[in-house]
């Protein structure tokens, strides 16, 4: 069982998401929704400012699991519950990613409960990775 136990805490990760990072992700993922790069458009549809791609936050949270390196990812899912608002400054938005072993399943796979926090609140809900050691 590679010594994995319920409650094990994975090494956390902190990432600052800047506007430049959003433009870069938009190009790499070919996700050009203007709410992720056009402030006027974002405000025009009722958002507080430009927001990060949910998939960027999900990719960052996934790094907590892949960096842990304890097995192959067999399933990964998350809900996008709150936006990560990215200001047009040199600080960007600080996102804190963490993970904890939530269960060891009967089939030997491991459930990791992930969390992504911005501005003191979780921005992902039910973020779960299933790993096969």
């Amino acid at each position: 069982m590679s010594g994995i136990q319920v409650g094990d805490v994975l090494p956390p990760l902190q990432v600052r998401i800047s506007r430049a990072a959003l433009v870069r992700y938009a190009g790499a993922a070919m996700d050009f929704n203007p709410i992720h790069w056009n402030e006027g458009f974002a405000r025009g549809v009722g958002l507080p400012d430009v927001i990060a791609h949910g998939m960027l936050t999900m990719a960052l949270a996934g790094r907590v699991v892949t960096d842990w390196g304890m097995g192959a990812l067999v399933d990964y899912s998350a809900r996008f519950t709150r936006p990560v608002v990215v200001p047009n400054d040199d600080q960007g938005a600080l996102v804190e990613l963490s993970g904890k072993v939530g269960a060891i399943n009967d089939d030997g796979t491991v459930r990791v409960n992930l969390d992504a926090r911005f501005d003191g609140r979780s921005v992902l809900g039910k973020a779960i990775a299933i790993v096969r050691p």
Partner: peptide, 8 residues
Amino acid sequence: HGDQGFTY
């Protein structure tokens, strides 16, 4: 985007 999942 509301949610996303992948099975590998």
